[in-house]
């Protein structure tokens, strides 16, 4: 084949070629993530040795997300009340408490906090590891026989998986309280704060809160592994650092959504 023909074939950008390339890219990321996840799980015995690093990461993730998560949860809680009350106009608004409580704990809290964490901590992890890869710090660690999975990934993995459920619990509380606040101040809502909490108490089960937090554990672990994998894929040049950051967020969003569906189905079976 002539060189020019080869170039044309390589550069052809048909729809099927693009789809095929995207699918292969996705499978590659998935395969590498599973590989890193297994290697990280294999280094779990080193958790006590990395306790300090895990704690540092938890503080970093928590403090970077706390303000924005409060803000987000507060307004989501209020919007839920206002929108639901509007839909229930003419019916009973007594159910507001349970709707806000169940929506926050089972769905909105976990998914929104996971998206927030992917945008803040996930992108930061991908950028950090991509920078270390591009500037040969990862190679330097290997020459020092320092395990990348144990020294770099494990603390981020554990810290993210533990911090996200706590953030979700925090967001659940803020969202529910914000809902009560909206009930108290909005003249269009004809239900008392007492009735709101009474209804919440009647329908919200402890298991709903736990399931939401368990989702956070999975979402956190998935976000950490994906972000680390994408960061470590960077090879040359600083432009790969910024593309790793964006990719980590996009892939985390997609994967969290897919896992959310899977967990919801599994929970409904039981």
């Amino acid at each position: 084949m002539q060189a020019t023909e080869r170039l044309e074939v390589k550069n052809s950008q048909g729809l099927l070629t693009s789809i095929g390339r995207s699918v292969l890219y996705g499978l590659e990321i998935l395969g590498q993530s599973v590989d890193w996840a297994l290697r990280t799980l294999g280094s779990f015995r080193e958790i006590p040795k990395r306790a300090g690093l895990i704690l540092d990461e938890m503080v970093r993730i928590g403090t970077s997300s706390l303000f924005i998560s409060s803000f987000l949860a507060f307004f989501i809680g209020m919007v839920l009340v206002v929108q639901t009350a509007d839909q229930l106009e003419g019916y009973s608004q007594e159910v507001l408490g349970s709707i806000v409580g169940l929506a926050m704990t089972k769905e909105l809290g976990p998914v929104l906090m996971a998206f927030l964490l992917a945008g803040r901590a996930g992108s930061a992890m991908a950028a950090e590891l991509a920078t270390m890869q591009v500037y040969e710090e990862i190679a330097a660690l290997r020459t020092l026989d320092v395990s990348v999975e144990s020294y770099l990934i494990l603390p981020k993995f554990i810290a993210t998986a533990l911090t996200l459920p706590l953030l979700i619990l925090y967001a659940d509380i803020i969202g529910i309280l914000a809902g009560a606040f909206a009930v108290a101040i909005d003249p269009a809502i004809h239900v008392s704060v007492n009735a709101y909490f009474h209804n919440l108490q009647a329908y919200l089960k402890f298991s709903d809160i736990i399931i939401g937090m368990a989702k956070g554990l999975v979402f956190g672990a998935v976000t950490a592994i994906l972000s680390c994998t994408i960061g470590l894929r960077a090879r040359r040049g600083t432009e790969e650092i910024s593309s790793a950051t964006t990719s980590a967020v996009v892939w985390s969003f997609i994967t969290v959504t897919v896992f959310d569906y899977i967990i919801a189905r599994v929970v409904l079976i039981f």
């Binding site: 270390m132 500037y135 040969e136 710090e137 190679a139 330097a140 660690l141 020459t143 020092l144 026989d145 320092v146 020294y151």
Partner: peptide, 28 residues
């Protein structure tokens, strides 16, 4: 033992000079 000095030095920015130099000895 084999060690390598990289073109851009490849020191870990999150660690001080002392901690960078101590890393191998502490880690193992």
């Amino acid at each position: 033992r084999m060690a390598m000095v990289f073109q851009g030095s490849a020191l870990l920015n999150s660690l001080s000079v002392f901690e960078n130099v101590a890393l191998y000895l502490k880690e193992h």
